[in-house]
Simulated scan of single mutants.
Amino acid sequence: MSPRRRVAASTAVAALALGLVPGTASAQEAVAVSVKIADQPAVAVATTPRVWPGKLLEAHGVPVDGNDLVAVVRDGRKVSGGKKRVREGDVVKLTEVEKVRTSKRERVRRGTVEIATTKLKPGHRKVVREGRPGVRKVVKLKTLHNGEQVRSRVVKRKLVRDPKPRRVLVGRKPFSVPGTDGLNWGALANCESGGNPNAVNPAGYYGLYQFDVGTWRSVGGSGLPTSASAGEQTYRAKLLYKQRGRSPWPNCGRLL
C-alpha cells in the first residue's frame, strides 16, 4: 500500500468505531458488521441496515478509488448485486488496487550469418564482422492488491536498436559439375580476364569468364557475375560448358 493511502486507511480504521453511519437510524436499529481495510486489522462497527458498503466506507472517511475492490462476505461467501447491501454479521472488505507501469530494456540476440566460400579451406571459418545485439524496450502493467503483485502483463514492446548479426565465412569445396572438373579452368580464366574475378568489359561482359548478364542468369546466377565469388563464377562456367561446350568462349575455349 502506498504511504499516503496507508496513513489514510489507518486513520479511517480508527474512525470506524466512533459511531453510526450518518443518517436517521437509531442505535436500536443498527446492525453489527466487520470492516477490513486492505492489510489493516478488521474492526467491528455498527451501521445503518441495508446501507451500500461503499457508502459505509465513505461515511467514515475511508479513501476508495475507481480501481479498488469492495466485497461483502456473508456466511463465508461473497455476495453481489443488490445483496451487497449490508446486513447483520456481514464482513465488508476493501482491497486497495494499484496499477503500476514499469519499463526495462532487454537485449535482442545478434544471431550469426554463415556465408559459404571457396576462398577458405573446407571447414575453416573466419569472422568478418562481430555484429552487435539489439535493444528492445518492454513496458509492463502490474496490478497490486494491498501492495502485493497479483498480475503482470506486457502492454508494449518497441525495438530501439536493431541487432546486427555476426558474419562468418565458412570454407567449402568448389562446386562440382560432373564431366567438367578435369578441364583447365584456370587457363580459360587467364585468357578471358587475366584471372581477375572483378574484370569488367565495357561491352557488357563480367568476371573471370566474361559472362554477359543474360547468360549468367541462364545458369542460375543472380546480380552481376562480379558480385559472386571466384568459386561460384567457375561453377556457373562449368554449367554453361555442360550446356554449350566451348562455344561461349570462341577465342579462349581451346585452352580447356
Rank of each mutant, 00 (worst) to 15 (best):
R5K: 11
R5H: 05
R6K: 09
R6C: 00
V7P: 00
V7R: 15
A8Q: 12
A9P: 00
S10Y: 01
A14S: 15
L18I: 10
L20M: 06
V21D: 05
G23C: 06
S26G: 15
Q28Y: 13
A32I: 10
V35C: 03
K36Q: 15
Q40H: 03
P41N: 01
A44I: 08
T47M: 04
T47K: 04
R50D: 09
R50Y: 11
V51W: 02
P53S: 09
L56S: 04
L57E: 02
E58C: 00
H60F: 13
H60P: 03
P63G: 09
D65C: 04
L69N: 12
L69Y: 03
V70F: 02
V70T: 13
A71N: 07
V72D: 02
D75W: 01
G76W: 00
R77T: 10
V79H: 11
G82C: 08
G82K: 12
K84E: 08
K84N: 00
E88A: 13
G89A: 13
D90C: 01
D90A: 04
T95L: 02
E96Q: 13
V97L: 03
K104F: 14
R105A: 06
E106T: 05
R107H: 00
R107F: 06
V108A: 08
R110E: 12
T112A: 14
V113L: 13
V113D: 03
E114C: 04
I115S: 00
I115C: 05
A116R: 12
T118M: 06
L120M: 02
L120Y: 11
L120Q: 07
K121V: 12
G123D: 10
V127N: 08
G131D: 09
G131W: 08
R132Q: 12
R132W: 14
R136Y: 01
R136M: 14
V138F: 10
V138N: 07
K140E: 15
K142E: 08
K142Q: 13
L144A: 09
N146G: 01
E148I: 12
R151P: 02
R157V: 00
K158S: 14
D162G: 01
D162E: 15
P165H: 01
R166E: 15
V168F: 05
V170H: 10
F175V: 09
S176N: 01
G179H: 10
T180I: 05
D181R: 10
N184I: 07
N184Y: 10
W185P: 04
W185T: 10
L188I: 11
N190M: 15
N190I: 00
E192K: 03
S193E: 10
S193G: 11
G194C: 05
G195Y: 11
A199D: 05
V200A: 11
V200W: 04
V200D: 08
V200G: 06
N201G: 04
P202Q: 05
P202S: 13
G204F: 11
Y205M: 06
Y205T: 05
L208A: 09
F211A: 09
F211G: 06
F211P: 11
D212A: 09
W216S: 09
V219C: 01
G220F: 08
G221R: 06
G221T: 10
G221P: 12
G223K: 03
G223M: 03
L224S: 10
P225E: 07
T226C: 02
S227C: 00
A228T: 00
A228H: 03
A228M: 02
E232S: 07
Y235K: 08
R244D: 02
R244I: 12
R244V: 07
G245V: 11
R246D: 03
P250L: 14
P250V: 15
C252K: 07
L255Q: 03
